[in-house]
């Protein structure tokens, strides 16, 4: 069953001006339910723009987007977010710093249909138990700090909390935009492990932008490569499992007719060597 379908999605920013930029140049993408695809590409290839098109940060100029059989092309952002989880590189973006851990989770839990109608209900004991149980799974001791403001947490803890919030009510689609890139290596590993286990456990369909070529091939079941607002390469199955990082870079050279100019990709390649 198809979970996400994008057909001929285009977006031009600042049309008709000197700053005109074709950010998405006819993107076609189909994700099966339970697919976990990684996305690589140069700076400005359109990876984040693709995510924003899906979440509704802007409405696409052309094309259509279908999520779980429902056409969401013109659905406003806050309605799409009911079924789409989105994590950013900046760990500060996904949580409200002056509110407690418990209050942040309560907001995320609004996605559950039953809670949405109860405007004047407060956080119940049952909710608190659920939050505590889920927080314990993170293994960060956050379950004992539920009354503390989120602003006191470290970047890694906040990102783990954001991940938990995005998946508290299982989303149809989870978008991860380099969500471990701003964390220190040990914390990044930890958050990545959590991501893997949560995604696998709930069978979430997932798209993940990464600059780490190793990760792009190891994680998930599919790798996409973007360039110039298009998906230029899409590999899965046996072909993918045989692929090395050098193969991937070579493939990029062929498809894009240029070197991969993402500085962090090059750095991570040096690190890997």
């Amino acid at each position: 069953m198809l979970m996400l379908e994008m057909k001929g999605v285009r977006k031009t920013f600042n049309p008709g001006t000197v700053n005109e930029k074709v950010a998405l140049d006819g993107v076609d993408l189909a994700l099966e339910k339970g697919d976990f695809a990684t996305i690589v590409g140069s700076n400005g290839a359109g990876k984040s723009t693709l995510f924003n098109a899906i979440t509704g940060g802007f409405i696409a100029d052309e094309g259509c987007i279908i999520l779980g059989g429902e056409d969401i092309t013109f659905t406003p952002e806050f309605k799409r977010s009911k079924v789409i989880g989105h994590l950013f590189q900046d760990p500060l973006k996904g949580t409200a710093p002056n509110m407690t851990i418990e209050e942040n989770l309560a907001l995320a839990y609004l996605r559950a249909g039953t809670a949405q109608r109860a405007y004047f209900s407060r956080i119940s004991r049952k909710d608190k138990e659920l939050f505590r149980e889920r927080l314990a799974l993170l293994g960060m001791g956050l379950e004992d700090r539920m009354k503390q403001p989120v602003g006191l947490l470290s970047g890694g803890q906040r990102q783990a909390l954001t991940l938990l919030m995005a998946t508290l009510v299982t989303p149809k689609l989870l978008l991860l935009d380099e969500h471990t890139a701003a964390l220190d290596p040990a914390t990044a590993d930890k958050v990545l492990e959590l991501t893997k286990s949560i995604v696998a456990e709930q069978g979430i369909t997932c798209l993940m932008v990464t600059h780490n070529m190793r990760q792009a091939l190891d994680l998930g079941n599919r790798t996409l490569m973007m360039n110039g607002g298009r998906i230029v390469f899409d590999v899965q199955g046996e072909e993918r499992s045989k692929m090395t990082v050098d193969d991937l870079l070579e493939r990029f050279r062929q498809r894009a007719g240029e070197e991969l100019d993402n500085d962090r990709i090059l750095l991570s390649k040096v690190e890997g060597a």
Binding site: K93, N104, L110, A166
Partner: peptide, 20 residues
């Protein structure tokens, strides 16, 4: 819940949209 949503709107508007 409505009050929490209002507080979050002033605290982190991007997060509010992402919380439906």
């Amino acid at each position: 819940r409505l009050g929490l949503s209002i507080r979050a709107t002033g605290d982190n508007a991007a997060m509010v949209r992402a919380s439906s």
